[in-house]
């Protein structure tokens, strides 16, 4: 859909506002060519002068739930809490970095009422990770032991290449 087609949808929302006796403004949030939020002005309905179409859309997108196969790490958990999301459902626990409970309980720093549910199809998520780490991860650093032993050899090849 192009801009003008989206605008038609927004105008429909604005018309709904008009019918409801509100200032006729309609708003859409589009992501990847899909509507992720629609809103219209609801100042009268809510007796709140800030309830513009955009604000209503923002509230809609903030009401998202996060479904993730592995428990978010401390960094991501902190980010999600700052966005004040409502709920996280995760598959397997993250013993290395987990920020819900496994390594550090980040929600307690943000006195948040977030709902967290873990171990939903955790085995499958874990299996995927295991498959990945079994295989060759091109970005993984060489193991420490190997590194120590080979340092000399590798660096001499470097000088040859220069």
């Amino acid at each position: 859909m192009d801009t003008s087609a989206w605008m038609d949808v927004a105008l429909q929302k604005a018309e709904e506002s008009l019918k409801a006796g509100e200032v006729p403004v309609g708003c859409l949030f589009i992501y990847n060519n899909q509507v992720i939020a629609t809103g219209n002005n609801t100042v009268n309905e809510t007796c709140n002068a800030t309830r513009h179409a955009e604000i209503n859309c923002i509230d809609q997108v903030l009401k998202f739930y996060v479904i993730v196969t592995v428990e978010p790490c401390i960094m991501c958990m902190s980010a999600l809490l700052q966005l004040q999301i409502r709920s996280i459902v995760y598959g397997c626990a993250n013993d290395r970095f987990g920020g819900c409970i496994s390594v550090l309980e980040v929600p307690k720093f943000y006195d948040s009422k977030i709902m967290i549910q873990g171990n939903i199809k955790g085995e499958k998520a874990m299996r995927l990770l295991q498959d990945f780490y079994k295989g060759v991860n091109p970005n993984a650093p060489e193991s420490k032991v190997k590194k120590g032993r080979n340092t000399k050899g590798t660096s001499s090849t470097h000088t040859e290449n220069k």
Partner: peptide, 11 residues
């Protein structure tokens, strides 16, 4: 740093 920044620096 907050947890976001501290963990970003750790990663």
């Amino acid at each position: 740093p907050c947890p976001l920044c501290a963990m970003a620096l750790l990663h």
